[in-house]
């Protein structure tokens, strides 16, 4: 083995050829991934590449551990880059391409400087390994950001999906939409019961016309919600059971005969008026 690798010297070599390396790098990025250029914007990309290269060369003079303090600035810019890109729906492939194409761009500079094949090999190997690690760090943070975006969206959807409408004095309506899985049903039940308590409502109309399938799990959840409502002294009416759903439910063996059901919201509302003794159409107009 030759002498210890002098990273400070490599850093200087790269610094002296920084513009050329950057140019090569950007040419490669533009050539390899049109999509990345389109999504991130060419100017942005150039700026990010330039900043990253600058910090990398700087870090190289001060240390070799990419997880260490010398590389802190490099990591910071990589993390902000991956955050930025995760929002723009840029693919992991593009991220990897972006980082790894830098390897090719400093190759010729190093080849020009180090003539001894063994030494050159060793240096390229060492620097490339740093780049690999940096690539992994970026990809990791990119994935984490993606996951958190998906979780945020899921939460947003969950909250969206349980609107409680106060349609009349002491009458609530909950239009259920989409897929009623266990966690959503839990949310529906909690939201409904809280709303009943807060508004002192006597009737809750659960409209399921937006639910594509009522299988035994959904039915079980509905029945539980009805039972819980009953415990609070209120009545739960289920509306919006379409004909194909009702036929399917019967064949499936689901028994909702203990529950007040109506085909339409309007009919459900009439029942609610009867139950609460409200006569909405006889209120004198003032």
């Amino acid at each position: 083995m030759a002498d210890e690798i002098n990273f400070q010297e490599i850093s200087t070599v790269l610094r002296n050829n920084q513009q050329e390396i950057l140019q090569l790098w950007i040419t490669r990025i533009v050539g390899e991934s049109r999509q990345l250029v389109e999504m991130a914007g060419e100017e942005n990309l150039k700026r990010q590449a330039s900043g990253l290269l600058d910090r990398f060369i700087h870090a190289l003079a001060n240390g070799t551990d990419v997880e260490g303090t010398a590389f802190e600035q490099v990591r910071t810019s990589l993390l902000s880059l991956s955050d930025d890109w995760a929002m723009k729906e840029i693919t992991p492939t593009d991220i990897v391409l972006f980082i790894f194409s830098m390897k090719d761009s400093y190759l010729s500079t190093l080849q020009g400087q180090y003539r001894d094949p063994a030494q050159l090999n060793e240096i390229i190997f060492a620097v490339n390994r740093m780049m690999d690690r940096l690539g992994l760090i970026t990809l990791n943070s990119f994935m984490k950001r993606r996951e958190s975006i998906i979780k945020e969206q899921q939460r947003a959807l969950m909250e969206l999906s349980v609107p409680i409408v106060k349609v009349w004095d002491r009458i609530l309506m909950i239009p259920l939409i989409g897929i009623l899985d266990s966690s959503r049903t839990q949310l529906v039940m909690e939201t409904l019961l809280t709303a009943i308590e807060e508004t002192q409502s006597k009737v809750a109309i659960l409209d399921i016309s937006g639910i594509p399938i009522v299988d035994t799990l959904v039915a079980k959840h509905l029945l539980r919600t009805v039972a819980a409502t009953k415990l609070m002294g209120a009545v739960c009416i289920i509306t919006g059971i379409r004909s194909k759903i009702s036929q399917t439910m019967i064949q499936l063996g689901i028994d909702l005969s203990s529950v007040t059901t109506r085909t339409t919201m309007a009919d459900g509302l009439k029942v609610a008026f009867q139950l609460t003794g409200i006569k909405p159409f006889e209120v004198p107009v003032q």
Binding site: D215, K244, Q247
Partner: peptide
């Protein structure tokens, strides 16, 4: 699975009612 089967059943020409039946069975 439900969504895929519904699309396939629709393509094969099943009625809305039968689509619902098959998809409910798939769900179970």
């Amino acid at each position: 699975a439900r969504q895929k089967v519904r699309a396939i059943a629709q393509q094969l020409g099943f009625s809305m009612l039968d689509q619902t039946r098959v998809v409910t069975a798939v769900s179970e």
